[in-house]
Simulated scan of single mutants.
Amino acid sequence: MAYWLLQHNPARGECGSGDWTVRRYRELITAGDGVALWHSGRGGGAVAVGTITEAAHDGVITVEFARMFTGRPIPRDTLKADERFRDALVLRMPGGGNPFPLTPAQWQAIEERVPPENQLVAATVRGAAALAVAGATALREAVRSVAE
């Protein structure tokens, strides 16, 4: 399992689950990978975590942010002070294109700070997302085998 971070400028409007254009790492992104949503700009930081539900096709991935905490973000300065996160690519190259890879330690630095009200359903949501990904993959393979 890999971990990714998608950056969004909230001044450009709302964003969340759905399709996201990716410019880099397309061949490495797989369904079931973890993903965090990062708001850029003043007051920025991590505002959601979720799962990649569909790998890159034509430069687009599908994401489900199961735990949104936009009203209570994890501030950039808090994560920057964490030795596990301080060398994250989004901090070193904030102008880079999506997605930004995260190490397991960087992912853990975010996960540990998810607001408590968003943690209670985490295991259930991850399990449901994994089942949905497995079902979608099985269906896609069945369609391919019939089409051939």
Rank of each mutant, 00 (worst) to 15 (best):
A2V: 09
W4Y: 06
L5S: 05
L6I: 12
Q7E: 13
H8A: 10
N9E: 11
P10C: 14
S17V: 08
G18E: 10
D19V: 10
R24G: 01
R26A: 15
R26T: 09
G34F: 07
V35W: 06
H39M: 02
H39L: 02
R42Y: 06
G44K: 02
G45I: 08
A46W: 01
V47L: 02
V47P: 00
A48D: 01
A48M: 05
V49I: 15
I52H: 01
I52N: 04
E54N: 07
D58A: 13
I61R: 00
T62G: 05
V63I: 14
E64Q: 09
E64K: 06
A66V: 03
T70S: 10
R76G: 03
L79T: 01
A81E: 04
L91F: 15
R92F: 03
R92A: 13
G95E: 14
P99K: 07
T103F: 12
P104S: 07
A105R: 11
Q108F: 05
A109F: 06
E111S: 10
V114P: 07
P116R: 14
N118R: 15
V121I: 11
A122R: 14
A123S: 14
A123Q: 14
A123E: 15
A123D: 14
V125T: 04
R126G: 07
A128Y: 10
A130N: 07
A134R: 13
L139W: 15
E141A: 12
A142V: 04
A142D: 11
V143P: 00
S145P: 00
V146S: 03
E148P: 00
